[in-house]
Nucleic acid binder design. Structure first.
Length: 423
DNA sequence: TCTGGGGTCCTAGGACCC
DNA sequence: TCTGGGGTCCTAGGACCC
């Protein structure tokens, strides 16, 4: 049996933990740059606020309904996620974190029926008491069915946060009541495709023949189909090293028009990629730098920068990545001063473990010197904070062109920002 | 005026090999 | 008049997830 632990409205719940006055108010959290609404409390959902709605369009409505609005605070959410996962790890020898707010756990050997349900209640209760984050647990013989169970667990209070699909009767009932688009692995496109063919519920989908599903949705669709039948075949597994790593951002207002500003941003993205690569102990063989103008505006001239460079030897070196990114941007910069770039980013790919780098006979870089310099810089940054020492081209490293007007504090990671309790 | 930021997997088609 | 039968690798595009 598998359990899926899913934090309810995770970002909103994180904000509520540190601000009890929010418990009776609807809450939303915005994407980077205060662009879109990406998390909603149940009360906000009830107001009809859509996932992904542009903030500026919803603003008046949010104010009218006394909705509390927050810029995203990933420092806080990441730390709260870590706490949830740490508590969860005590309940099962197999834990796979699937996203910032979700994890699968193995539940074989923890009993069946009421015994298992009671164990589930312990899990949910422990996390809620230990972190203040409400969670739902779905339990079923496959991961897809565990997702289905969690779906019902969230909707019906009577389950007490734990929903079990452990027999044929419950499976059939659950699938009959679930819209096909709500099945894990069936996205918008495929849902529409299936609807057109008269498949409206998860149950309808399960009644199709395997060959039919294979024909329409390929092998990934067949895997979902089998999972709905109770045959476990999706392996979420321990996440291996990432094959590509992207760091990108949108810029506030109309965007950036000067090469020096975009260059500063791109240098920062490359530095972030270097850090992410080192965290997973890998190097990259190539990098892509991109920047583009707003895709929503037809009144200004559009332009897209996109350049890929290959490294002679796979690297994660900050200086080397930043230099490559800046060089690529400059090589593609049009120089007519006509464009305002709304978004830019750096993708590193072709990754390999840093223990298995293929050397190059004609390597132009002095690797020994590079490694010593990087080690010294990393040591300073471990002590003095992430960007205590950085490359000049990265600029202030305090990004001023990202909007965060509704930010909460770093309650759990900065001693200067912890909650003060008055006597 | 303003519209997020990450990832993975699969397939088809083209280029190449003998 | 007629023109084979295997393979691999790469890329772009599309689908999905949170």
């Amino acid at each position: 049996m598998f359990g899926l632990v899913d934090c309810n409205n995770f970002y909103c719940s994180c904000e509520r933990v540190f601000n009890p006055a929010l418990r009776t108010r609807p809450v939303v959290v915005l994407s980077n740059n205060d662009g879109c609404i990406i998390a909603r409390s149940n009360e906000a959902k009830a107001l009809g606020i859509a996932m992904g709605a542009p903030f500026y369009q919803a603003k008046a409505m949010l104010e009218a309904n006394n909705v509390a609005v927050f810029s995203s605070n990933y420092t806080l959410y990441g730390d709260m996620s870590r706490r949830v996962m740490m508590l969860l790890a005590d309940f099962s020898p197999e834990l796979t974190q699937y996203s910032i707010d979700e994890a699968f756990i193995g539940l074989d050997g923890f009993g069946t029926g009421e015994v298992l349900r009671e164990y589930g209640r312990q899990i949910v209760g422990t996390i809620c008491r230990g972190t203040g984050i409400p969670v739902t647990l779905g339990i079923a013989p496959t991961k897809t069915l565990a997702k289905v169970a969690a779906h019902y667990g969230k909707r019906y209070k009577g389950y007490g946060g734990v929903c079990l699909i452990d027999n044929e009767e419950r499976r059939a009932k659950a699938l009959r009541g679930l819209a096909i688009g709500d099945v894990w692995g069936i996205g918008r496109r495929n849902a529409a495709k299936l609807e057109r063919r008269g498949v409206h519920s998860a149950w309808d989908f399960a009644q199709l023949s395997e060959a039919w599903v294979r024909e329409l949705l390929s092998v990934t669709g067949v895997r979902t189909w089998k999972e709905l039948h109770g045959e476990s075949c999706i392996d979420v597994g321990e996440l291996p090293q990432k094959k590509s790593i992207c760091t990108s951002r949108s810029f506030a207002d109309a965007g950036l028009g000067c090469v020096c500003h975009v260059e500063e941003a791109v240098a920062g993205f490359a530095a972030a990629c270097s850090r992410k690569l080192k965290e997973q102990r890998s190097c990259c063989g190539a990098m892509t730098v991109f920047a583009y103008t707003s895709r929503f505006r037809s009144d200004v001239s559009a332009h897209c920068i996109n350049r890929t460079v290959a490294f002679p030897v796979a690297t994660a070196d900050r200086q080397e990545l930043v230099a490559a990114a800046v060089g690529a941007l400059r090589a593609e910069w049009p120089g007519d001063g006509k464009h305002f770039y709304k978004k830019a980013g750096v993708i590193v790919w072709d990754t390999c473990p840093s223990s298995a780098i293929q050397a190059n006979l004609f390597d132009p870089v002095d690797r020994g010197r590079q490694a010593r310099l990087a080690a010294a810089a990393d040591a300073i940054n471990r002590k003095g904070g992430r960007n205590a020492v950085r490359l000049a081209v990265e600029g202030s490293a305090q990004p001023h062109n990202f909007k965060r007007e509704h930010a909460s504090r770093h309650f759990t990671t900065d001693i200067g920002q912890v909650i003060r309790v008055r006597a």
